[in-house]
């Protein structure tokens, strides 16, 4: 049994919020360099270079990559042999978000009630997903999610008969409907199977996988390649101004489902594929 004090959780979340909003991972740099090599449109290449320049500048000046520093989506993998001490786990996480977004001068983008729409002023509450796992570690992932890409996302309950072709068509239709709005070149999380909420959750989790890394199952990896090829044949391109690279990558996640169902969720991530992790 490992004890983890809530103060440590709060300070970790605080740091992860700031880091995720200002520093993009090595996988992002590799993916955008690859995109530069593949892109045929001169304007699109200039735009990708500009995004790289922006990312460099964000690190240099400790400024947010994008002003939409999003809703803080926090994924917890909580070992069943961990004991949280000194307070409430979720309160500790929200306190970390509050401190991170305040001390980091990040934008507060959360309204407390979706109908009344008054800003909470500190970007809380976070959206927290907890998974109980074996062991005595707590893994915390903070993925700030902007609304430009989230708004273009969706879910459809396909029929088993729709099959792979139906899935590909749905994703490509979503990409075409989204156009420039989700800030392409995007990353596309595709959750297939489960049920309504499970498909959405695995689509979001798919966005956390490093860019360029394929699904371990060969048939899922092949589907990722197929969807990516079709998406990049739309011509939408970086910022929607035309080009080859509409998506930097497509990540598929699968989950067992009902004999009569084929749920498919599409979660768009803008080019600022932000997330930061820590293991306590």
């Amino acid at each position: 049994m490992k004890e983890i004090p809530v103060e440590l959780i709060t300070s970790t979340v605080e740091n992860l919020c700031i880091k995720a909003c200002t520093v993009l991972g090595d996988d992002w740099w590799e993916a955008t360099n690859k995109a530069l090599a593949q892109e045929e449109s001169p304007l699109a290449r200039d735009l990708i270079k500009l995004l790289q320049e922006n990312a460099r500048l964000a690190v240099e000046t400790n400024e947010a990559i994008c002003q939409d520093t999003g809703v803080a989506v926090v994924f917890l993998e909580l070992g069943q042999d961990v004991r949280i001490t000194g307070g409430s786990l979720y309160a500790a996480i929200n306190e970390g978000v509050r401190r991170g977004y305040t001390k980091g001068y990040l934008r507060k983008s959360v309204v407390g009630d979706p109908l009344i729409r008054k800003n909470t002023g500190d970007n809380t509450p976070a959206i927290i997903h907890t998974e109980i796992v074996d062991g005595e570690n707590l893994k915390i992932t903070v993925a700030p999610k902007g609304v430009g890409s989230e708004n273009m996302s969706g879910i459809k309950m396909l029929k088993p008969a729709d099959g792979e072709e139906g899935i590909i068509k749905y994703v490509v239709d979503m990409v075409e409907a989204a156009g420039a709005n989700p800030c392409p070149p995007v990353v596309i999380g595709v959750g297939i199977g489960g049920n309504l909420e499970q498909a959405g959750l695995i689509a979001k989790k798919a966005l956390l996988r490093p860019l360029g890394q394929r699904h371990p199952l060969p048939h899922a990896a092949a589907l990722e390649e197929k969807i990516l090829e079709r998406v990049n044949a739309t011509g939408i391109g970086p910022q929607g101004l035309g080009g080859r690279i509409t998506a930097l990558d497509v990540h598929v996640e699968l989950y067992p489902t009902h004999i009569g169902g084929l749920p498919v969720a599409v979660n768009f991530q803008c080019h600022a594929a932000r997330h930061a992790e820590a293991i306590l």
């Binding site: 735009l47 500009l50 922006n54 500048l57 400024e63 990559i65 994008c66 507060k108 910022q239 803008c270």
Partner: peptide, 25 residues
């Protein structure tokens, strides 16, 4: 350019709130 927030901020030389301050951002 969407998502180039750090870069575009550098071209803004002065900023002041003139209305609806209660709306935050």
């Amino acid at each position: 350019v969407g998502g180039a927030g750090a870069l575009l901020a550098q071209r803004i030389k002065k900023a002041e709130i003139i209305a609806y301050e209660d709306l935050g951002p």
